[in-house]
Simulated scan of single mutants.
Amino acid sequence: MPTPDDTHLYEDVLVSPMYLAGSNGTGTAGFAPVAHWPHHYLDEGPCQLVVTSPDQRIRIGWFGDDYELWKITAATDAVATPRWTATFNHVTPAEIVAGLTTALAHDYAQADAYNGQGRFLANPSYRWTDYVRPLTDAGWTRDSGAERGTVEIVAPDGQAGILIDSRPSGWDDETTTLWAGPPGWGTRAEAVFTERTPSHLIAATAAVMANSAPVIRERHQINQRMAHLVTLTPLTPASKTSETLGSRAPTPLDVRRTAVTQAVHRAARAPRTAADLRVMAAQSRTTGAVHNRPSTFAPAASAPPSSASAPRRSR
Rank of each mutant, 00 (worst) to 15 (best):
A303H: 15
A298L: 05
V279M: 15
R278H: 12
S307M: 07
A289Q: 12
R266L: 12
L277Y: 04
H265M: 02
S309H: 15
H265L: 01
P305Y: 09
S302Q: 08
T296N: 10
P271R: 09
S306L: 02
L277F: 05
T273Q: 12
P294Q: 06
D276T: 01
A274G: 15
D276C: 01
A298I: 02
A298N: 09
A268K: 04
S309G: 06
P304H: 09
P305C: 03
A270N: 08
V290Y: 03
P305H: 09
F297E: 13
A300H: 14
R266T: 13
A298Y: 05
P299S: 10
V290T: 11
Q283V: 00
S295I: 03
Q283F: 04
G288F: 03
V290F: 01
T286H: 13
R272G: 12
A270T: 09
Q283S: 08
G288M: 04
T287Y: 14
T287Q: 08
R272E: 09
T273S: 15
S302E: 06
A281T: 10
A303W: 11
S307N: 13
S307C: 03
P304M: 07
H265D: 15
S295G: 02
N292C: 01
V279E: 14
P299W: 05
A301M: 05
H265V: 01
A274V: 08
S307F: 10
P271T: 06
A300M: 10
S307G: 04
A289G: 12
H265F: 03
A303M: 12
T273F: 03
P304K: 10
S284C: 02
A289C: 02
P294F: 05
P304L: 08
S302T: 12
S306F: 01
F297D: 11
S302F: 03
L277N: 14
R285Q: 06
P305F: 08
A300T: 08
S284V: 02
A303Q: 14
S306W: 06
T296C: 06
P294K: 07
D276F: 00
R293E: 13
A268R: 13
G288C: 02
V279K: 05
A281E: 14
T273C: 02
A268C: 01
M280A: 05
H265S: 13
N292L: 04
